[in-house]
Simulated scan of single mutants.
Amino acid sequence: MIGAMAKAMRDTSAAGLLLVSLAACSTAAQAASYTMYRDAGCGCCLDWADHAAEGLDAEVTAENADMQTVKDLHGVPANLRSCHTMIVEGYVIEGHVPAEAIRKLLREKPQDVTGIAVPGMPVGSPGMEQGDLKQPYQVIAFGPKGQRIFASYN
């Protein structure tokens, strides 16, 4: 009888620990922190950061960073570069990437992707709004296996 009670208490404790662990993981996924590098004189970067921070906690914003060096260190291909670079959960986010694409990346966690990028500064992308003007653009995933379209916005 005592052995059965001890086993039941042990099983209950293990289940409780599992639930607490799952809750902690869920909270951590919702509150991912990021580091954003940008030139202090760039206004669109702050507009984009407000958009992109949806569900993320800002950890550091490095202003006046040597952006060329930041992009080189994080492996951003020259053809995908834009005005700001963010690092979140080990992934590189380059340029005016929509928050929904960032959430998709963090949810799916593809192993062959270093990051995602919106090259240049397309009109209508987050942070580059110009009223009703919108330019179609793509979010490009990049990594050791090359580049591919991650999402398209028209």
Rank of each mutant, 00 (worst) to 15 (best):
I102L: 08
K104T: 07
Y137Q: 03
M36F: 09
E89I: 11
A49Q: 13
P126R: 06
V88H: 15
D57C: 06
V88S: 13
E94H: 14
T69S: 11
E89H: 06
A8D: 08
A15R: 13
G43A: 08
T27H: 15
L80N: 11
E54L: 13
A101L: 10
A24L: 13
L18M: 13
V20E: 11
G127P: 03
G124W: 07
I140T: 10
A32W: 00
V60I: 03
A23M: 08
T61R: 14
G146L: 02
A40W: 08
M121P: 01
P136A: 15
G124P: 04
T35K: 01
G146H: 12
A8E: 05
L46K: 10
C45Y: 00
A6D: 10
C45H: 07
V113P: 02
V139T: 06
V139C: 06
Q30H: 09
M36E: 00
S21Q: 06
A40R: 10
E100K: 08
K145N: 15
C83P: 01
M86Q: 04
Q147V: 05
Q130K: 11
G131I: 04
T85C: 02
T61Q: 09
K104N: 08
D132E: 12
T69N: 05
D112Y: 04
A99G: 10
G41Q: 01
V20M: 10
L73T: 09
H84A: 01
S13N: 03
G90I: 00
A53E: 00
T114E: 05
A49Y: 02
V139W: 07
V92E: 13
A31D: 09
Y34A: 02
M128Y: 13
R103T: 12
P110G: 04
E63V: 04
T27C: 07
M36Q: 08
G143K: 14
R10W: 07
I149F: 02
L18I: 04
A58I: 08
W48G: 01
V88M: 07
S26A: 08
G143F: 10
S82F: 01
A49C: 12
K7Y: 12
V60F: 12
A24W: 03
A117D: 07
W48N: 03
A62N: 11
Q135L: 05
A65L: 02
L19E: 13
R38G: 07
D11V: 10
P98I: 05
L18C: 04
A65S: 06
G146M: 11
S13E: 10
L17W: 00
L105Q: 07
K7L: 15
V139N: 01
A65K: 13
D72Q: 10
A15W: 00
E108K: 07
T85N: 12
V118K: 06
V92G: 12
Q111P: 00
